[in-house]
Structure formats: C-alpha cells, structure tokens
Computed example of a mutant assay.
Amino acid sequence: MRPLNFKKYPFRFKSSENSTHIFDIIRKKFVLLQPEEWVRQHTIHFLIEEKKYPKSIINVEKQITVNKLKKRFDIVVFNSDGSIQILVECKSPDIKINQATFDQIAQYNLKLQATYLMVTNGLDHYYCQIDLIKEKYTFLREIPDFSR
C-alpha cells in the first residue's frame, strides 16, 4: 500500500490465501486490506493517537438509512451524550475528493447531525464545522482534539 499523509502507525497484518488483512482496533478483528481500508485505519489511528479520542467513543462502518436507502458511514466519534461529534468519510487514495464526496457526507449528516466533518483520501484531508441551526459550514485547518 502506498504511503499516506499521516504519521506512521503500528499496524498488525495477517496474510492468507492471496490476500492481506489489517487489524482494526475498533472492530477488534482483521479486515481485508483494500485502499479505502488503508485510509480508514490510518484515520482511526490519527483520531486516537494524534487527537486523543478514546477508542470507546469511536464507531466504524455501521449501517444507516438515508432517504430510505441503506448506507454505511466510515467512522463516527460520539460525544458523551450520544450525539455525534465527528463524521468521517474515507476514500481510496486513487479517488480525488470532489463535490460528490462532500455531497455524500452531507447526505449522511442530514441523518447523523455531526458537529464536525472530515473527508480524506489519505493524501488530502478536509475538515468542516457544521452549524446545524444556521445550516452552514466552515472549513477548518484541523478538527479539535478530544476534550472531556
């Protein structure tokens, strides 16, 4: 897998029958290593190791229903009250982040109502703060660190 614009993290790998798996520390299992998963695992470690979010408030790849369609979000980080602090959309490094990517995460956020959005392909990272009342967003240089 190609290097990404994250620090280097201590991943665990397992190979079997012509495929490689990476250990997901949130789901506590090995998952097939594909380009988007490579980005997702780096993002998880970034949230935990750089931004200091506890593993216990992070959820990965869960199904939601948006406009009567079943979708899967990549990563959410919860607040202590159960609301969502951060919604993350991960793409393969080969995929350019474009308006369609932002439209996708915005659709998910209509349902999830996160305070912050992060969109990444591992090479480029975008962060936004959402004002749900005014229905607008502001781009940020980074998402906030965890605070109690």
Score class of each variant (00 low, 15 high):
residue 13 F to E: 08
residue 13 F to N: 04
residue 14 K to Q: 11
residue 14 K to M: 13
residue 18 N to F: 04
residue 18 N to W: 08
residue 18 N to M: 08
residue 19 S to N: 11
residue 20 T to H: 11
residue 20 T to D: 11
residue 20 T to Q: 13
residue 21 H to M: 02
residue 22 I to D: 05
residue 22 I to P: 03
residue 24 D to P: 02
residue 27 R to Y: 02
residue 27 R to C: 06
residue 28 K to M: 13
residue 29 K to Q: 11
residue 29 K to T: 10
residue 30 F to A: 06
residue 34 Q to N: 14
residue 35 P to L: 05
residue 36 E to K: 11
residue 37 E to P: 03
residue 38 W to S: 02
residue 39 V to N: 00
residue 39 V to Q: 00
residue 40 R to L: 10
residue 40 R to T: 11
residue 43 T to N: 00
residue 44 I to M: 02
residue 45 H to E: 12
residue 45 H to Q: 11
residue 45 H to N: 13
residue 45 H to P: 00
residue 45 H to K: 03
residue 47 L to R: 02
residue 47 L to D: 06
residue 50 E to Y: 02
residue 51 K to Y: 08
residue 51 K to H: 12
residue 51 K to N: 12
residue 52 K to R: 13
residue 52 K to Y: 13
residue 52 K to H: 15
residue 53 Y to Q: 13
residue 54 P to Q: 06
residue 54 P to F: 06
residue 55 K to L: 14
residue 55 K to W: 01
residue 56 S to M: 09
residue 57 I to H: 10
residue 57 I to D: 09
residue 58 I to S: 05
residue 58 I to A: 04
residue 58 I to L: 15
residue 58 I to Q: 03
residue 60 V to C: 10
residue 61 E to T: 08
residue 61 E to F: 05
residue 63 Q to C: 08
residue 64 I to Y: 09
residue 66 V to M: 00
residue 67 N to D: 15
residue 67 N to W: 06
residue 67 N to S: 15
residue 68 K to A: 04
residue 68 K to M: 07
residue 69 L to T: 13
residue 69 L to R: 13
residue 70 K to W: 04
residue 70 K to G: 02
residue 71 K to M: 14
residue 71 K to Q: 15
residue 72 R to N: 10
residue 73 F to Q: 02
residue 76 V to L: 10
residue 77 V to N: 09
residue 77 V to T: 11
residue 77 V to L: 07
residue 78 F to I: 01
residue 79 N to C: 07
residue 79 N to R: 13
residue 81 D to N: 15
residue 81 D to L: 03
residue 83 S to K: 15
residue 84 I to E: 11
residue 85 Q to K: 15
residue 85 Q to A: 09
residue 86 I to L: 12
residue 90 C to D: 14
residue 91 K to L: 10
residue 91 K to T: 08
residue 91 K to M: 07
residue 92 S to N: 11
residue 92 S to V: 10
residue 93 P to M: 03
residue 93 P to R: 04
residue 95 I to D: 07
residue 97 I to E: 02
residue 98 N to A: 11
residue 104 Q to W: 04
residue 105 I to F: 02
residue 106 A to W: 05
residue 107 Q to I: 01
residue 107 Q to P: 00
residue 108 Y to R: 06
residue 109 N to Y: 07
residue 109 N to L: 07
residue 111 K to P: 00
residue 111 K to H: 07
